[in-house]
Every structure is written in C-alpha cells, then in structure tokens.
C-alpha cells in the first residue's frame, strides 16, 4: 500500500449487496452521515426524505430548518442508544420525561435541540412538530429498502430518572445542567451491541427485508467527559464502535460494514483528509469514500439525471401569487 497514491487505496475488497438506484435509502447518524446523504442525492440515488418541507416553504428556508439533511428531521444521532430510543419513541413505547429545554423564551426539543433555528416559539408548536416528526420517522423506516447508519460516539448524557439519552449535554444549547438530574455515560461495547441489536430488531419488524449499511464516523471527539485526554477517549470510542459494527455485520444477515473510517483515517491519507481543525473531513476525503461506495456498494450504471421540471412548490406558489397579483392589479386599475 506504501507504493500507492493515497486516493488509489481501496480497502473495500468486497461488499455483500448493492444499493439499487431506485431503492429507498434512509440515512441517519452522526455528522459524517450528512455527507453520505448529500452524495446519494447528488448521484441520483433515491435518498428518501420522509419528512419533506411543505411546498409553501422556499428552498433556502427549508434547508435552514434542516429539512432534507437526513430522511427525517432527527438531526444528528450520535449513539446507538439514541437510535434505539428514537424507534421506541416513534412507536409510542417510550415517552421521555424531559419534554423540553428552555433557551430564553424559546423551547428546544431535547432530542434534536438544533433542529429548528432558535428553537420553537411555543410548547404547543414543539409538541405538534415532534408528533409529526415521529410519525414521519416511522414512515421512513417502513418505506426504506436500505438504511445507512453512521455510528458516531459512545459518550453521552442521560436522564437519571428514565434513561433518556440526549445528543448533547443538557445546559449547553438550552435547559439547565444539574448533576442530580443528568448522568454521564460512556457506553461499553456490550451496551452498544445490545442497543444496535434491539434497534435492528425493531427495524426488521417494520421492514424484514431492510438492508443495513453501517459506517463509523472518522470525526474525532471534540471533547471528552472522561478524566483523560480527548485523544485517548477518541481511540476508545471509535474502537468500540468499529468492533460493534464488525460484530453486527458478521452476526446479522444483510448488515454490512462500509470502511469509510479506514479510508479517511488510514496512513495512506497522511492526514490530508482532515481539515485544518483536524476534525472536519475534507471534501477530497468524502469524495474518496463515496467513489468507493458507489463502486462497491451501489448498482452500476450512469446516474439518472433528475428532471428539471418545476417543483410542486414553485407551481403552487406561482399559481397563488398569480391570484394575489391579479387581485392587486385589478385594485390598482380601479381607483375611482
């Protein structure tokens, strides 16, 4: 491998199945999963968006409100426990006691605190949005043919009372931290495996033929709540997740591991696939990952070019604008 150019390294070797171009692919996970979702969309694969923005919203507004980042507006799902609990919540089998976090006068969803810029304007709005969101989550997993999940972290904060796990530490983005209410956890390999197995069971109950692709995020931890250096925590966290992914792919049919972690972090890259902050993955690195993904894990052939027909949003807004303008024009023409 030492004689190869970094971008020529291909550690995939073989992959057990291929993603069809029309198969509905649902994505979730940590930050790195966003890149996968973006490339799938760009390459004309059926990145399935179950929680679509309403046609009344302009595209840039929808993007800012995190529509289309993943298949539903769950934001980043960093831990296996989060995924497991998301499914439980979507089924109505788990209702966390922590209903909201306050940030000034706004309400945050503790399980996706950054999903709505600035937060929700009322508790009623948060409740309605969450109900709708969880319905769409269930729909996404029922409709999916392929699920791509990027495992990100083992460290998390949980509610001491009911074990609800949060994507970020309470008090950072909203709410108030209290050591009596919240506990730090660093999930062990056994816990990650159990959470993933239960999540996969739940997914397969909804959708027995679901193909699952696991990846491990190459993005190192920004901080650790363990009493040790973040480098040490990163190694442990990624090792646990990597072993969990390997175990799951060996033990469960139609669960595959795709080595994006190795492609980004391997020695061949000489660190080039990390940005100057030494955490963000460069576009070059993502391109390498996705090139191999499409080569080994996706159906061959040219990507269908999405038709450039006007979107439903444009057609309907144009029609509505036309009505409003016709009325305005008429009013202006009749000043007597």
């Amino acid at each position: 491998m030492g004689g190869l150019a970094g971008e020529a390294v291909d550690p995939v070797v073989s992959f057990p199945f291929r993603v069809g171009r029309t198969e509905r692919v649902v994505t979730a996970g940590s930050c790195f999963a966003q890149h996968i979702a973006r490339y799938l969309t760009e390459q004309g694969f059926n990145h399935y968006i179950a929680e679509r923005p309403h046609t009344v919203l302009r595209e840039e507004v929808a993007r800012e409100h995190n529509y289309g980042m993943f298949s539903a507006r769950y934001g980043n799902i960093y831990t296996a426990r989060q995924l497991r609990q998301l499914l439980q919540r979507a089924h109505g089998r788990f209702v966390p006691k922590e209903e909201y976090w306050l940030k000034g006068e706004r309400y945050l969803d503790p399980f996706r605190p950054q999903i709505n810029p600035g937060g929700f304007h009322s508790l009623e709005e948060l409740r309605r949005d969450r109900k709708q969101h969880l319905e769409r989550v269930l729909h996404a997993f029922k409709a999916a043919r392929v699920f791509v999940f990027t495992l990100g972290l083992t460290e998390a904060w949980v509610d001491r009372e009911d074990g609800a796990v949060f994507p970020i530490c309470p008090g950072v983005e909203g709410g108030t931290f209290s050591p009596d209410r919240y506990a730090f956890v660093n999930f062990s390999l056994a816990e990650v495996l159990l959470d993933m197995k239960l999540a996969i069971q739940a997914l397969r109950r909804l959708n027995p033929k679901l193909k699952i692709i696991l990846t491990v995020s190459p993005v190192p931890l920004a901080a650790t709540a363990e009493d040790r250096h973040v480098l040490v925590s990163t190694t442990l966290s990624k090792s646990v997740l990597r072993v969990a992914a390997d175990t799951l792919s060996r033990e469960i049919a139609n669960v595959a591991y795709f080595p994006s972690y190795e492609i980004i972090t391997g020695n061949h890259a000489q660190g080039r696939y990390f940005d100057r902050d030494l955490r963000s993955v460069t576009e070059e690195g993502v391109r390498h990952v996705m090139r191999l993904f499409f080569q080994h894990a996706a159906e061959e052939g040219e990507a269908p070019v999405p038709a450039k027909a006007p979107s439903a949003r444009l057609r309907e807004e144009d029609a509505a604008r036309e009505v409003a303008e016709v009325l305005c024009d008429e009013a202006l023409l009749d000043p007597t």
Binding site: P53, H54, L57, H65, N116, H121, E125, R128, Q132, E316
Partner: peptide, 29 residues
C-alpha cells in the same frame, strides 16, 4: 394547498378542532 398546512402562532390560540391531518410548518419557517 394541495397538502393543507398550518402553523402554531405563539400569540394566537390554536383552535381545539384544528385538523391534525394538516402539515404543521414551523412558525419561524
């Protein structure tokens, strides 16, 4: 709209009979 929408205005009480089948759009959006 083809898919009816609604939103919660923080200073206007939503009618209890409001149709749940409507798509709820964030106020800020």
């Amino acid at each position: 709209h083809r898919a009816p929408f609604d939103f919660v205005h923080p200073r206007i009480k939503t009618k209890a009979k409001t149709d749940d089948d409507r798509t709820w759009v964030p106020f800020s959006a």
